[in-house]
Nucleic acid binder design. Sequence first.
DNA 1: GAACTAGATAGCCAGATAGCTAAATAGTTG
DNA 2: CAACTATTTAGCTATCTGGCTATCTAGTTC
Lengths: 112, 112
Amino acid sequence: MALPSPLTPEMAEAIAERFRVLGEPTRLRLLDLLAGGERTVGDLASEIGCTTANISKHLALMADAGIVTRRRSGLHSYYAVSDTAVYELCGQVCGSLRAIADARAASLRETA
Amino acid sequence: MALPSPLTPEMAEAIAERFRVLGEPTRLRLLDLLAGGERTVGDLASEIGCTTANISKHLALMADAGIVTRRRSGLHSYYAVSDTAVYELCGQVCGSLRAIADARAASLRETA
DNA sequence: GAACTAGATAGCCAGATAGCTAAATAGTTG
DNA sequence: CAACTATTTAGCTATCTGGCTATCTAGTTC
C-alpha cells in the first residue's frame, strides 16, 4: 500500500492517467448508468443523447483502463463495470466538493 | 451523500472537473511533496525540476479547486494541502491499479 | 448471398491545456 | 528610490481529446 516518496514521475503518471479517465463527464454518466448492471452501447448512447460512435469510444477507453468489461452476444456488446472502486472514488469526491462548498459559504457569511 | 440518479450532466461535470485536476502528474507530485507540510513555490519548482511559472500555475489551479491554500509571507508564498481527502483518493486508485495489474498477470498465466 | 443492424474504427475539427519565455507585480534591502 | 528577489501573469506553441460524419466489420434474417 505504501507509495514511493517522493512519488516517482512514472507512478504519478500512472495515477494521473486513471484520474484522467474519470475526469470526463460523459464517462461518469456512463458509469452511473452501468451501476444497475450491464447495458448495450446503443442503449447507453440513446440515454445519454449522443452518437454510438462516441459512446463506443468512451467504453473502449474505460475497458483499456480496466474499469469496464465487454461481453459480446449476437449483434450486441454488453458493457459492465469491473472496477466498482470507481463508485467509492466518486462518492469521496462528492464529499470533498460538498465540504469545500460549505466552507466557502461559511467564509462568505463571515465576510458579509 | 446520495447522488442523483441518473447522474445529471451538471453533477457529472462537477465531479469530472475535480478528477481532471488530479489527472496531471505534476500536480500529483506537488501534492505528494506537500504531504510533509507547507512549501514555497520556488522550493517545489526546484524539487520537481521545472519553471516556477509552471508550478505557480498548477498551485493556483489547485487553490481554485479548494485542494490547497496559500499563505503569503514576505517574498514567499507558502502552499499547503487543505483537502487531505486527495491522499485517500490516490491510495484507492493505487489499489485499483494494483488489482487490475494482478488480474491481467493472472489471465496471462492462464493463456500461457 | 442480399439486406439489414449494432458496433467499432478512421479521419477531421474545435477547444482545452501543460510547458516555455518574457514581462509585470509585490515585497525586501541597501 | 534603486536594485534585487519571489511569485504571478501574459502570450505563445505543441499536443491531446471529445465530438462529429463516414466507413468498415461482424452478426442476423430473409
